[in-house]
């Protein structure tokens, strides 16, 4: 069984008027089935309002399913007693780096999670050191978070989650507020953690370039999963992607147009190098 198993997951937001009567119901997540194996790097792609962030918040038990079940590491998120152990095992990194750093010194912020779950003092220090080194922010441990760049802040936030030694990390649009350099920095860090520490990563994003190296991709639209497969399978369906208002990477787009124009190029080109290879043959 996988580390995350969603079965017919439904989440509805109720919009209420002033008396508390339900005005309208919005289905943000609609019968989603998801299965993630330990150690995988999963991406969930979707346009704004596709329900991908709502889905992410379920994995951390910040939201509870209206219908269906979600098991994280074999534990049902809707059982209240499981809450802490689920949050410990499935760490979450949010979009705005400023709003998720709690302490005014980097190392203290990374220590916040372990403090909450009652780790003894000496072990907190070893965990903080390990976590900061794993994201390459050890030299900044005594700095104030206010003086760091966006990408660095996000790496501190990832370290803060790593210090709790989770089995999986959910990155909820971690790069949406960063510049291109910061974006690369964060995605690279996520891949490194996945490769070297074996942490399962679930990356939620609307930038298609970021999902190229994932093991498996889900595309969401209006609350349901509309496409799933390896990046290559997904990227070979350029027209479908355009229909879901996703920006297909330029290389893929160019390759697709060339193929349509009759050139002998395989579908689902992901990188510039691949296109070059295909063109030169």
């Amino acid at each position: 069984m996988g580390i995350i198993e969603a079965k017919d997951l439904v989440h509805e937001y109720y919009r209420r008027d002033e008396e508390g009567n339900v005005e309208s119901i919005e289905t943000a997540v609609d019968h989603v089935n998801l299965s993630v194996q330990p150690g995988q790097f999963i991406s969930i792609l979707g346009h704004n309002g596709s329900g991908k962030s709502t889905l992410a918040k379920h994995i951390n038990a910040l939201l509870l399913p209206t219908e269906g079940t979600l098991l994280v590491d074999g534990k049902d998120t809707s059982v209240e007693a499981n809450e802490l152990s689920i949050r410990k095992n499935a760490g979450m990194v949010f979009q705005n780096p400023d709003n998720q750093i709690i302490a005014s010194v980097v190392e203290e912020d990374v220590g916040f999670g372990p403090e909450n779950i009652g780790v003894p003092t000496e072990e907190i220090w070893t965990r903080v050191e390990k976590a900061l080194k794993s994201v390459g922010m050890w030299e900044y441990r005594t700095h104030s978070p206010n003086r760091l760049s966006g990408g660095q802040k996000q790496r501190v936030a990832i370290a803060g989650v790593m210090a709790m030694e989770p089995k999986c990390i959910i990155l909820d649009e971690p790069t949406a507020m960063l510049d291109p350099d910061g974006r690369k920095e964060v995605i690279k860090t996520a891949h490194e953690l996945n490769r070297t520490k074996g942490v399962t990563i679930i990356l939620i994003t609307h930038y298609m370039e970021e999902v190229v190296d994932s093991d498996y991709v889900y595309v969401m639209e209006k609350g349901s999963v509309v496409m799933k497969g390896t990046p290559r399978e997904i990227f070979s369906q350029v027209d479908a992607l355009k229909q879901y208002r996703l920006d297909v990477p330029q290389v893929t787009l160019l390759a697709d147009e060339l193929r349509k124009a009759g050139m002998d190029i395989p579908a689902g080109i992901l990188t510039r190098e691949e296109l070059l290879e295909a063109l030169c043959h």
Partner: peptide, 15 residues
Amino acid sequence: MEARCYHGGEGRTKM
């Protein structure tokens, strides 16, 4: 804070 297991001062250790 909630996502990082914050649940008040109870059972909290100090860095």
